[in-house]
């Protein structure tokens, strides 16, 4: 349905004012020279800066983001799906392998078992730092080994004849 014809004639006469706006005198005399100088200097404009130009020269991406801007429901659905994918990814990465499933790695080791190395923890011994006496006898101390060993010291006799030589 077409609208009622409106009279924009006065508005168009008013807009003529803008046709009389002119840059400072001599502005265009130098304009092309400045452009050429910048090209010679290797200026790429804003081509090399960020992903902005790439974004704005990609029509499907522009359309997609403008659709997101205009339709909040679409934006919500998109963000939900992104969150869902992220969550699924996290869950897949931390969940233990299903025993019913064939093991991809081989053997009976699950992915989780491989990912987290098992370190044997020593049993904790709580010793007060102010108590000079240890709670139990020292086991396997070097001195005990010496005391209990049957090793006799070897005596080497050096004969006088050898000394004389």
């Amino acid at each position: 349905m077409n609208p009622q014809p409106e009279n924009f004639e006065q508005l168009r006469r008013l807009l003529i004012v803008k046709r009389h706006e002119r840059p400072p005198p001599g502005f265009f005399d130098d304009f092309s020279r400045r452009v050429i100088l910048r090209i010679k200097a290797g200026d790429l404009g804003d081509e090399a800066v960020g992903i902005g130009p790439w974004f704005w020269n990609t029509p499907w991406l522009q359309r997609f983001f403008s659709a997101l801007e205009q339709k909040p429901a679409l934006a919500g659905a998109f963000s939900l799906s992104v969150c869902g994918l992220l969550l699924a990814g996290i869950l897949c990465s931390v969940a233990p392998a299903d025993p019913g499933r064939p093991d991809l790695v081989g053997g009976s080791q699950s992915l989780a078992a491989i990912a987290v190395p098992q370190v044997a923890e020593p049993s904790p011994v709580f010793v007060s730092s102010t108590n000079g006496v240890l709670p139990g006898p020292l086991q396997n101390s070097m001195f005990q080994q010496l005391g209990t060993s049957q090793v006799q010291p070897r005596l080497i006799r050096v004969s006088e004849s050898v000394m004389e030589q």
Binding site: P23, F31, R34, V35, R38, I39, D43, G45, D46, E47
Partner: peptide
């Protein structure tokens, strides 16, 4: 702004 943008448009067009 118009000066900068017009120049950049011509530079981009050249490349």
């Amino acid at each position: 702004d118009a000066n900068d943008l017009a120049q950049e448009a011509f530079i981009k067009a050249f490349h």
